[in-house]
Every structure is written in structure tokens, then in C-alpha cells.
Design a protein around this nucleic acid. Structure first.
Lengths: 233, 233
DNA sequence: GGAGCACGGATTGTATACAATAAGCAATTT
DNA sequence: AAATTGCTTATTGTATACAATCCGTGCTCC
């Protein structure tokens, strides 16, 4: 009477460890450890790791094991520039179909994102959830499931850093401004500018992250022994 | 002394079966069959199927097995519209970095694509290879590996149909014209028009395929018993 | 005669067991 | 003392074995 398979369970578990930063980039993920913790056998864990490799969260080195993916500035650039295009494309297609009711829903999300919460952490968590919902709604309206899936995959790869960037008030308010402008432009049916603004929104987040290298250096693996692992022939 | 793991071997094998159309859409892929044919055990086959599911070539229905993905017109639309954007994006970034030598290489590929071969099949196969090389070169120059990977993934999903569409001379010459124009615009450093032409090129291929429904209906599974499989609760 | 239920076969999901390989350490040699 | 080689150990890659579930068929009952 399980609702999810053991593979799905293991996938969610490992993904959570990576996204929350509990497992640092470069760190090895041993199949036995995960299997032992979840009290299951190795095969489901293996399959989960395979799936996560496909999603770009994990790299497998033959006969060596699975490791949390390491991010360079180049990777950040790759992900954000792609995300910018996918989001802009989604909006472009969404502009053909969006209804007034849906515009109101987007406006509501933007309003909620501006709201304050008890603690800063709560605010960030709420913002992340709403932010996600905002972009998913646009991509859903666009009606391209593959686009949604690809964007989600890219997003997962950088979700590690989003909590920390949002810790900066300047970035959070800037993000809010972008959303407001985007919705305004959608309402005005200004496709060209709306898409451009969406692109700028994502690229602005990239610029912010790249100008705060401490954010993704903080997640670096201990340089002691792990460094040797990077020696590729 | 194997160079590739059994998983990679199984992946290549199954992928080939699907892309060549030997396995029809909707057809079940039994782990035992593949394992028996390749004379290996089930686990590597399972992992291969998992990977192919991630690439969108296979769907797994819980406790039911793996099936070759079925394509609807909606899927065709999703894939081509996305591909158009990814290719255009790649070109946009490539325009910043492309060298004159690389432009000459592209010109050479276009010239080769126009060349005739002994038989029609040979010509199509050569064209496919060169065509692939042409777009990969542009994406490589763009310098975004993730973009390349995503585009490759999308391409695999429709490669089944590309051989057949190229059987139509009209489509092949149209495709050649697009390539010629794209390279010309690259040479003239007309970024805007080059990207637009690239988009049009991909969308033109989509229009052609969608206006020849026989091409992807030909690959349909036998309606006898398999149809029942599609009954979802 | 038709519909519902039960049982059997087939196939996947999961677990355990074994084999192969690569890393780390120590001992030995130069 | 440093380097190299051989051994040991830990971990993945692969195979086999078992359990759970779903489909189809045949029987029974209405």
C-alpha cells in the first residue's frame, strides 16, 4: 500500500540532501549509506542516483561512485542563460493564451510575494514557494510540458543557492520589482517587452550570484582529501 | 577490458531499436527479452530503460513495464518549438564568438549537404550526419554544454521521423536553402535575421511533418491488443 | 447467456550474493 | 628518505533469487 516506489523515495531523499546543502558539492554519495539509512536495498538507491545524474545533480565516476555535482562559474552561466531563454520562451507562448483571470492570479502571487512574514526565514521560504508557483503558472499556460520539465531540471541545479541569495534584501526587492513589471507588461499585452523583462529578471539573478562568489564557495567541499578525486587523466 | 559498461551497451541497443523504428511506439520493451538478446542480466537493462525514460524515449508504467513513447501532434509541437528556441539561442550566443575559420567550416558542411550520392538512401544518411554536425558545431561554439545536451535529447525523440521526411525531395532542398541562408547571414554578422532564420528552419520542418501525418502514423503500434494498454484510470 | 470472481501465468520491483576494480597503506628496495 | 610495488579493503558493477502485482482466462452463479 505504498504510494511511491522505493526509487522515488530514495530520489526525494537524496535530492533533499543535495538541495538543502547537507551534502556538499564534490562529496561522495555511497549507495550503502543511503540504503542503510532508508532501510532498503541498494538497487533502488542505484536507480535513484542514475536518475539524479540525468537531472544533473549527481555525477557518477565509473567504479568510483556517485558524487554531488560541483558548480563552477561557467556552470552558473550555462544554467542561468538557458533558464532565461526558456522562461522568456514560455512567456512568449503564454501571451497567446493567457486569460484575464490568469493575469489576476499572477498579480495575486506578486502581491503575496511582497508580503512580510514573522521571521526572515519564513519570508524567504514563502517567497521561494510563491516564486516557483509564479513561473510554473506561466509555463503551464504556455502549454509545453517539456519546457516545464527542462526548466524545473535547471532550477533544481541552482536551488541550493537561491535561499542564500534571497537573504540579501536588495536582491529580494529587486526580484519583486521585476515580477511587478513583468505582470504589468503582460497586462498591457506588450509581448516584446514582457519577454525581455523576463530574460533580464533571470540574468539579473545570475549577475547577483556571480558577484557574490562566497555564496557558492560556501558550499564547497573540504579541500583536504576530496581534491584528489578531481584528478582526471 | 570492456570500454563501455553493460548499461551503456544496453542503452545504445535499445535506443537504436527505437530510433530506427524497429520498436514501434506503444510497444512494450520486456527487460528479459533485451537481457536475453544481449546475454546479460536484467539490472543493466533496467538501468538503461531508466535512462531512456529520462531522455523521453520510453515511458514506464508502474508494475506494467517499459513502453516505447507514443507521439501525438502535441508532442511534435512541443519538441519542435523548443528545439527552434534552443537552436536560435545557440546561434545567438555563437554569433559573439564565431571565427572566420569556423564560418568556413560551416560553409563546407552546407556544400557537402548539397552533394549527391550514389543512392537516395546514402544521400539521406549522409545528409543526416552532416546536418547533425552542422547544428552541433553551432551549439559547441555557443559554449553551453547543457544547451547541447538538451537539444540532443529533443532531437533523439524525433529522429525516428527525420529519415522519412528527408525522403521528400522538396523538404530536403528546402532544408538546404535554409542552411545556405543561415550561413550567409552569419557571415554578414546579421544576428537578428540569422536567429530568425534558424527558428524558421526548425519550425518549417515541424510544419512539414505535421502536414504529412502518414509519416508518424506509419510508426503506430498494431491496434489489436496493444491499444488496451493505453487505458489509464 | 452474460457478468463477476478467482486462479494461474507472466513481468516487474526488490533483496541478497558474488565478482571486479580502484584507492590507501605498508613494506621493501634503491 | 623517497619511490614503487604488492596487498588489503572498501565500494561499485553484475548476476541470481524471491516477492508482489497485474493481465487474462475459465469457471460459476445469477
Amino acid at each position: 500500500m505504498r504510494v511511491e516506489s522505493l526509487v522515488e523515495m530514495a530520489t526525494r531523499y537524496i535530492e533533499e540532501l543535495i538541495v538543502t546543502g547537507e551534502l556538499k558539492p564534490g562529496e561522495q554519495i555511497k549507495e550503502d549509506d543511503i540504503a542503510g539509512t532508508l532501510d532498503i536495498s541498494r538497487p533502488p538507491v542505484r536507480e535513484a542516483l542514475n536518475g539524479l545524474e540525468g537531472e544533473g545533480l549527481v555525477v557518477r565516476k565509473p567504479r568510483r561512485g556517485a558524487f554531488v555535482i560541483e558548480m563552477t562559474e561557467k556552470d552558473i552561466w550555462e544554467i542561468y542563460t538557458l533558464k532565461a531563454e526558456l522562461y522568456a520562451t514560455a512567456l512568449n507562448y503564454a501571451m497567446d493564451r493567457i486569460t484575464n483571470a490568469q493575469i489576476l492570479e499572477l498579480k495575486d502571487l506578486v502581491a503575496q510575494m511582497k508580503a512580510n512574514a514573522e521571521t526572515k526565514e519564513e519570508k524567504i521560504l514563502a517567497f521561494q514557494r510563491l516564486h516557483r508557483e509564479f513561473h510554473i503558472k506561466i509555463m503551464t499556460i504556455a502549454g509545453n510540458q517539456r519546457l516545464l520539465k527542462m526548466a524545473a531540471s535547471l532550477h533544481k541545479q541552482i536551488r541550493r543557492y537561491s535561499f542564500q541569495t534571497l537573504g540579501y534584501d536588495a536582491h529580494l526587492t529587486a526580484s519583486n520589482q521585476f515580477h511587478q513589471r513583468i505582470v504589468d507588461l503582460i497586462e498591457q499585452k506588450d509581448r516584446e517587452q514582457a519577454c525581455k523583462m523576463m530574460r533580464d529578471h533571470v540574468l539579473d539573478a545570475m549577475t547577483f550570484l556571480l558577484s557574490h562568489p562566497d555564496i557558492f564557495n560556501d558550499c564547497a567541499p573540504e579541500p583536504a582529501k576530496k581534491q584528489k578525486i578531481n584528478n582526471e587523466p
